[in-house]
Write a protein that binds this DNA or RNA. Sequence first.
DNA 1: GCCAACGTTGGC
DNA 2: GCCAACGTTGGC
Length: 172
Amino acid sequence: MRHDRKFWLFKSEPSCFSFEALQRSPGGCAHWDGVRNYQARNYLRDDIQPGDGVLFYHSSIRQPHVAGIAGVVKGGYPDWTALDPGSEHHDPRCSVDNPVWYMVDVCFVAPFPVKVTLEEMRGQTSLKGMQLLRKSRLSIQPVTREEWKTILQMGSLAASVVELMLDSLKEG
DNA sequence: GCCAACGTTGGC
DNA sequence: GCCAACGTTGGC
């Protein structure tokens, strides 16, 4: 069993890219591209590894919530949308030699039988330390194993089963 | 739609 | 390298 798995929360506006859209993507997988914040970039480039668990969070809607679980299948590599003049994420400062921005690949793992809303998370004493509930507008945030387990429990997902699914994702 | 929080830009 | 101005995020 792997002991170095990390956990993350990825934010997305569902009108832009939803958890359901990830599920419908080819193979249930997609590039997590377009991130244009240095702190988030550093996590993508340096820390996020295949097999890591992702809480897929829907932001900027009436009831913000964690919609489900995704898994990382490919660690950080250059985000080519930054080089594409036709992309809305184009960044003219970037080149092949200096990509600046990075992305990872994620795959659908499991939806929450019960969506975990921001409001419910705020009500959980054990989640008081979560970055999401404190300051950050950061779109990629680390999540502790304890926070991960609490949120899975709130959403009626068995953490042990999800870990097995993340293991199998990692193995291909 | 408002606005607080906060990241980025650019003049000095 | 400071910091004011400005832009963006995202909950409400």
